[in-house]
Amino acid sequence: MNAGLPTENILELDDVHVFYGAIHALKGVSLTVREGEIVTLIGANGAGKSTTLRAINGLNHARRGSIRFQGNDITTATPHTIVKGGIAQSPEGRRLFPRMTVIENLEMGAFQRTDRENFQADMDRVFELFPRLYERRTQNAGTMSGGEQQMCAIGRALMARPKLLLLDEPSMGLAPIFVEKIFEIVREINAQGTPVLLVEQNALMALDAAHRGYVMETGRIALEGEAAELKTNEAVQKAYLGLE
């Protein structure tokens, strides 16, 4: 499936443990994302998918284990240095700045960038991907519909020109036609060279879009493999694809 892809790891998690107070949320997660890949992370509610992305982003530091990005250890780095290094996230629940306009939200996405000259071109590209956002560009993000907010959150992450894009349930709350469109955009972003780590509830579509996948269960990686293989895996079909 991923023949022709370079096999260099851009992201490596090795035995990562994360705690919320006394709650042991990640119990030794190891995964990799290679250059050019879409990797999906699926699993039941509370399995630890968002926590994994938060650990990568430096919002919850791993108490044990290590996280390497492009060969550098970022396990204990601060979030803003990690973002500056090239990891952008569209977080669960969108987390837009509600009393800032769409344009200002997009500007915040590009906050750590130093190449101000490409800024307008990138914003135009986001507006091209999401024409609806252009119509809403001077509206406060908090007053937009859920779907519009989701587009803005993805656009905001793209504005960082990331070397690795983390997407936490980008299709959440979107009408089916928009879900299709979001997956199309994820493929397109990836085709232009950006590796993507995609957390999804919609396991079927995620496995269709991804090269490889990981299945999480209660803080651990239960299964991993080529996306096409996972799709035909009996346990996955039963638990996540709603097939008997």
Binding site: N57, G58, L59, T78, P79, H80, V83, K84, A88, Q89, P91, R95, L96, F97, P98, R99, M100, M108, G109, F111, Q112, R156, A160
Partner: peptide, 15 residues
């Protein structure tokens, strides 16, 4: 303003 509205999301923007 961003930090006032969502501190964690601000960190995710590289602020």
């Amino acid at each position: 303003r961003a930090v006032s509205q969502d501190r964690e999301a601000s960190a995710m923007m590289g602020i």
